[in-house]
């Protein structure tokens, strides 16, 4: 079953996670790995996501007496999971419960990259936007209003040039605040059209009863509406993990699979 890979990985992360686990997400070609390398230096190792040929890198750094574990997720355009890479990224952010997720975006290509950022914010409020490659944006004569962006998104926005180590201290500080000083984040919520919104409303309450706050019920409702079988199976496995030793729910899984 697909979930074993995730579980195994989560257990491995849990072993020596330090004071907090931070996920690093981003589109391909955004300099995400540069951010990861600059933050962790040589304190890292790469490995295979169990059961899948997807690489992940784990690293760590120390800031203000806290040991931070950083998980570099595979590059993805979206979390709707059309490839193994995207599925791994989604599963970790959603079920791995990182203390915060940093989304690295390309300043020169904000619109495309915000697509992913908004999807992450839909799952978890603990999101930080790292706008990388601002030097490239300047070269292309683009001006970006970062504070306005932060206001619109409702999460911290940190401009960086990771390869020149510009802005990384700000990023560490922002992570510190979100994780340890419980900075309150109110991420912008994506509003869908009436049909979808009313459908969410119809099922969200029942979903809430089911997930007991262990997952974001609005997001789960959306995935159920979308009918994506991989995520529905993963959600079900997650619920089962919350409530182990439950035989009958296995039958429900079959129901889920039939629907997918």
């Amino acid at each position: 079953m697909q979930v074993t890979g995730l579980q195994e990985f989560l257990e491995r992360i849990e072993e020596n996670k330090g004071d907090a686990v931070i996920a690093l997400a981003g589109n391909p070609n955004t300099g995400k790995s540069t951010v990861f390398n600059s933050l962790t230096g040589l304190n890292q190792h790469t490995g295979n996501w169990p059961g899948k040929t997807v690489v992940f890198a784990k690293g760590s750094y120390r800031y203000k007496k806290k040991n931070i574990t950083l998980v570099d997720l595979p590059g993805a355009y979206s979390l709707l999971a059309n490839s193994a890479d995207e599925q791994v990224a989604r599963d970790f952010i959603c079920f791995g419960k990182p203390d915060a997720t940093v989304v690295v975006v390309d300043a020169t290509c904000l619109e495309r990259n915000l697509n992913l950022a908004l999807q992450v914010m839909e799952i978890t409020p603990q999101t930080i936007l790292c706008v990388n490659l601002i030097d490239e944006a300047k070269r292309k004569k683009m001006a970006i209003d970062f504070s306005k962006l932060a206001d619109l998104l409702g999460v911290p926005v940190i401009p960086t040039v990771a390869r020149d180590k510009v802005g990384l201290l700000d990023l560490k500080e922002s992570i510190h605040r979100v994780v340890f000083e419980k900075q309150l984040l109110q991420p912008r919520r994506i509003v869908y059209n009436k049909v979808i919104e009313s459908a969410i409303e119809k099922i969200q309450e029942e979903v809430e009863v089911l997930v007991h706050g262990s997952l974001n019920s609005r997001w789960v409702a959306l995935r159920l509406l979308d009918g994506d079988p991989t995520i529905i199976r993963e959600i079900f496995n997650h619920l089962q993990r919350m409530d182990p030793g439950d035989q009958q729910s296995k039958r429900a899984l079959k129901v889920v699979e039939d629907c997918g």
């Binding site: 355009y77 059309n82 495309r112």
Partner: peptide
Amino acid sequence: GLIRNRLLDLG
């Protein structure tokens, strides 16, 4: 199917 979803995701 998958092709469609992939194209949608790309924008």
